[in-house]
């Protein structure tokens, strides 16, 4: 993304005053979620603040945890080490997720890259786009999404409980929870970068979304 566009999008979000993920007024995180859902062809997206958080959310979403085994073929050493830290070992088991690492060069091809994924969860690693640690888990399974969100302290479920004063899903009991929340300023930059990358390849993002100032008038 051009430095000017990055500057505009950051200034726009800071002018809005909403830089926290837990604010009802935040529009950046839902905007990026919608974009990733559209481009990946799966309806549920959980945004997180690192690639390892996305790995955690992906396996937790499938109910995999301490004591389970997964097919770790093709996973790099740090990811296998991270899974081991979660108590998940390599062996006979499901392929836990597919992974797409987006860069400025391939960001315009997310739709095609996502279409090649076959595992129940797709980890979209957004770290190399240049806006800091960020990732997403994309899935067609609503329960997997819900479990991933429950992993986040003050994720969608905790916020609903706080706002309504009623436990929003007592049947989906969280275990360990982390603050894996992504910051709206980071999400805003990624959203514009993805839209511009798509547009530069001849894709058709909504016109308002391809500009750094998108969202300023809403």
């Amino acid at each position: 993304m051009e430095p000017f566009d990055t500057a505009v999008v950051l200034t726009r979000v800071m002018t809005s005053g909403t830089v926290m993920s837990i604010e009802k007024a935040d529009r950046e995180l839902p905007g990026l979620e919608r974009l990733l859902a559209r481009q990946c062809g799966r309806p549920h997206v959980s945004l997180v603040n690192s690639s390892t958080a996305a790995v955690h959310a992906a396996v937790a979403g499938q109910g995999l945890g301490h004591g389970d085994r997964v097919d770790a073929t093709g996973l790099d050493e740090p990811t296998v080490a991270f899974l081991a830290w979660l108590g998940i070992t390599a062996g006979d088991g499901p392929v836990p997720f597919d992974r797409v690492r987006l860069t400025p060069e391939n960001a315009g091809r997310l739709r095609e890259l996502a279409a090649e994924a076959t595992a129940p969860a797709l980890v979209v690693d957004l770290c190399d786009l240049g806006f800091g640690p960020a990732a997403a888990v994309v899935t067609a399974d609503e329960t997997a999404w819900a479990r991933a969100e429950r992993l986040k302290i003050f994720g969608a479920f905790d916020l609903r409980t706080m706002w309504t004063q009623e436990e929003s899903n007592p049947g989906l009991v969280p275990g360990v929870q982390f603050n894996y929340r992504l910051s709206p300023l980071v999400a805003a930059c990624i959203r514009v970068a993805l839209n511009q990358a798509r547009a530069s390849r001849g894709g058709s993002p909504r016109a308002s979304e391809a500009t750094a100032a998108s969202g300023a008038a809403r």
Partner: peptide, 16 residues
């Protein structure tokens, strides 16, 4: 490093 955990702070957050 040993457990492959990414807890890095986002530079955008730090600049603020």
């Amino acid at each position: 490093a040993r457990h492959g955990i990414d807890y890095r702070m986002a530079p955008i957050a730090a600049a603020f």
